[in-house]
Design a binder for these strands. Structure first.
Lengths: 115, 115
DNA sequence: TCTATATTAAACCAATTAGTTATCAACTAT
DNA sequence: ATAGTTGATAACTAATTGGTTTAATATAGA
C-alpha cells in the first residue's frame, strides 16, 4: 500500500486518532494507552501496530515496556495532499465565485481595485 | 461513522483519490470517470457512492446521466485535524530539535544569534 | 528459580470492503 | 413500441478489519 493510503486509513479510525492524541502529550506505554479504552489490550496493541506500520508511531524498548511515541511526519504528506484541494473549498478561488465577488465589489465600491 | 472518519477512509483509496482528481478538472459522468480504470463500471459506481456518502461528491441528474461534481468541503475538516499536529513535524518546534539546532548554530557560527 | 508484569502472537469470528457478473430502471431516439 | 445507453442494484466471493480469548515471550524482582 502506498504511504498516503496507509496514513489516511490509519487515521480513519477514532480509536487510533485517540491514541495519537494521547501520544501528542508524550511518550506512553501500551498499557497507558489502552487504559482509557474498553477494548482489550491486544486490540489496542493491534491498533498501535497499524499506526506503527503507517510510520505514525515509533517505539522504544525499556525493560518489558515498549514505549510509543508520535511521529507526525507522515501527516505532512497527507496535509499536502489535502492542501492541493484547498481552492475547491475556499470558494473565493472558484471561477464563479471570483466572478460574483468581482461583481459584488463593483456594485459596492465602483471603480475600486481588486485586493 | 463520524464525518472525519468517513472523509479519511474515503480518501484512503487510490482509486477514489483518482476519481476526485478527475472531478477537480470538472463535472463528469460515471462513464467518463470509469473509463481510465480497468475495473467494472459497477465498481466505480460503488466508489462514487462512498465518496458521495462522505460528502466529497454530489450528483445531478440530466437525462440518463448522473453527473458528479467535487465537493471538497469535508476535506477542510480533515486538513484542520492534520494541522493540529503540525508542530510535531515542523521539527524546529520540538524541544530536542530546538536544542540540537541551537548547538549546531553555536558550532558553525559561534556567537551568532538564532534566526 | 519462580512469579508477576507488559506486550505480542495465534486462532478464531463477525462485519465490512472491493471486486465480479447479471439484472433492473430510467431515459433517448428511432 | 422498441432498442440502445447510462447507471444503480442484487447476489455472490475473497480478502481485510476489528474485535475476542488464550497462549507465548521478555523482563524485573523476590
Amino acid at each position: 500500500m502506498d504511504t498516503l493510503s496507509a496514513t489516511l486509513s490509519a487515521l480513519a479510525d477514532p480509536t487510533r486518532r485517540g491514541l495519537l492524541a494521547q501520544l501528542a502529550l508524550g511518550e506512553a506505554t501500551v498499557g497507558d494507552l489502552a487504559e482509557p479504552y474498553e477494548m482489550s489490550l491486544a486490540a489496542v496493541s493491534k491498533h498501535l501496530k497499524v499506526l506503527e506500520h503507517a510510520g505514525l508511531v515509533t517505539r522504544g524498548r525499556t525493560a518489558q515496556y515498549r514505549p510509543c511515541r508520535l511521529d507526525a511526519k507522515p501527516m505532512k504528506e497527507a496535509l499536502d495532499y489535502l492542501s492541493s484541494y484547498r481552492r475547491f473549498w475556499e470558494e473565493n478561488f472558484s471561477r464563479l465565485d471570483a466572478l460574483l465577488e468581482e461583481m459584488k465589489a463593483d456594485t459596492e465600491n465602483p471603480g475600486k481595485d481588486r485586493t
